[in-house]
Design a protein around this nucleic acid. Structure first.
Lengths: 330, 330
DNA sequence: TTGTACGCGTTATCAG
DNA sequence: CTGATAACGCGTACAA
């Protein structure tokens, strides 16, 4: 590979001049022209390792989350990727964190400086994670619930409000007995959605019990299918809210098989509004948590922070939106 | 951030010794112990830019493809990510290539050395792309159809065989008039699937014409919906094959709305076997192109090539599998 | 405006 | 087995 030295020789100038041309510092017109010609000629590309070593910047941003099999994270990744693609930063992806240990290990490697910033959406809460994030020397944008004691840029979606919208919508359309199929309550979303559900139900004076509140073992369709099959009697309910669309898809599948009519017998509402929601039959009413938009916002926050490291920490809250489809209205 | 020098001072040894301990070269037991203690103490992490500069390796692998909104690529990304996560390599993602220009630009930046290898799945064929890939100094694994004149590791799925399986399955289950909804024929998959469809149809002596061969403007459900609505009369057909599951989902939606019964009036078959296929109603018969597995294989090929740069070029062919579901059998 | 020379943090060579 | 030291390729004082 051609180095800056080779370009300098070819152009008959010093390496300093080549560097200046590349980095846009002043240079005489004809110098610049010769340098550019040499660069083209040799197909020169600045070595990123050398550059990174010198300027202490990798031009890379790391995006970390639990798992790419969740379409909501795919949407987020798309948002981040889109925004980053018009910047100088590359996207490095780090997913598949099945345990707190793995996140901790990953966070520790951040010290190597291979990324200038970290956008992270941790599914688990753990003091170690919070501690490590706080100690990172690089900018961090956290997507999701901020752990205790962490103070970084944050993009947050008010999923409680979303759940509330869903419940109110169901009540307004005449439903009275609402069940909830949650994901693992060991996760942040699981815990938060459980709390939000119970709060809204109480506020609206709606009855609910442990038996109307199921916990699936994952945020997947299969888990949703298994979860709904554990209800003693579906006839006790006229509506089910699922903690995400994938769970809802599984639940819907079960209903179809058991000839439970949706929405006539039971209304079904999901969360996330992934593409799937409009392809199911009946189409699925869902609370749009704007994952792609959150990804874009997170990336923009990161770019701003990188450009201006000392600006005050920002928290951006995204409002969910209820997308009403066939699964909840006759 | 602590440097290797700081560790050396703290441990009372030379930086060379620290380096040796880190890289596992011989060292006396007590030297090693002191160095390790110092490393722990200072929370030292080797700087990856400096290391990359010296050893000419970035420990990063770049995965490039068209677009993350296609679930098949998400599967592939998962496969690659999984395999890479148990290696020392990081995954850098480069998607959203809407034009040949962008791919060319991206390929040119590869010369910067920020990645040790490139796994690429180009949706477009272009001589410039082929040329650039051939000239890259780094290992490349190509997922998909090899362009003319390119000679790199390749993982290939015999989608023609898959299409053939689908057609035979339809014929065996009594279908006679088979239509094909293709994606953009400007793309590699589009072109190949068109050719494969026509070849299989001829071989089986099945009638088909231009009017039974539609071209959607993208590989999306919306495009599938619009495409199927352009058939003059659906009654002319008793089966439709779609170039991917997303197109099929759109087509299915249209059929549901128009009260065309699937599979009674029309059988529907998709390609890719993404999660969606088993969630649709009716569930969708689909040709599994094993995207996730191809991702794993591609990553493994890359790791092998990196470990052994001079081994002969490999081509691994993956066999598709027809997953029969409700949309094609009564 | 241009060129020389140094240093970024590592690894690897070569004497001891 | 260890320590001093020369690269790796680039950016930038500083001097011209």
């Amino acid at each position: 590979m051609a180095t800056i030295g080779a370009v300098a020789k070819q152009a008959g100038v010093s390496i300093a001049s080549v560097s200046r041309v590349i980095n846009g510092t002043a240079a005489r017109a004809d110098t610049e022209k010769r340098v550019r010609a040499a660069i083209d000629d040799l197909g020169y590309q600045p070595n990123s390792a050398a550059r990174a070593l010198k300027v202490r910047q990798s031009e890379q941003i790391c995006l970390s989350f639990d798992d790419l099999s969740n379409p909501a994270y795919v949407l987020m990744t798309r948002g981040v990727g889109q925004t980053l693609s018009s910047s100088k930063y590359r996207l490095i992806l780090s997913s598949a964190f099945s345990s707190v240990e793995e996140i901790v290990k990953h966070l520790e490697t951040m010290g190597r400086g291979f990324a200038d910033g970290l956008i992270i959406s941790p599914i688990y809460s753990d003091p170690r994670i919070a501690e490590l994030i706080s100690q990172l020397k690089m900018p961090v944008v956290l997507v999701g619930t901020m752990p205790e004691g962490v103070n970084v840029d944050n993009v947050y979606v008010d999923s409680a409000a979303g759940l509330d919208m869903a419940i109110k919508h169901l009540v307004e359309t005449g439903r009275k007995n609402i069940a909830f199929i949650n994901g693992p309550v060991a996760t942040n979303p699981g815990r938060r959605r459980k709390a939000a559900f119970e709060k809204s139900m109480k506020q609206l004076n709606l009855a609910f019990s442990n038996s109307s509140n199921l916990q699936a073992e994952a945020f997947t369709p299969e888990a949703g299918y298994r979860a709904i099959s554990e209800f003693r009697d579906l006839k006790n309910f006229d509506a089910i809210i699922c903690a995400n669309d994938q769970l809802a898809a599984g639940a819907m599948k079960f209903c179809v098989e058991k000839r439970v009519a949706i929405p006539r017998d039971i209304a079904l509402v999901g969360i996330d509004n992934i593409d799937l929601a409009s392809l199911l039959r009946p189409t699925l009413t869902s609370v749009d948590l704007r994952a792609e938009e959150r990804g874009q916002i997170a990336a923009r926050l990161m770019l701003k922070r990188l450009a201006n490291p000392d600006s005050p920490v920002k928290k951006i809250t995204v409002q969910p939106q209820l997308i009403i489809r066939e699964s909840s209205v006759a």
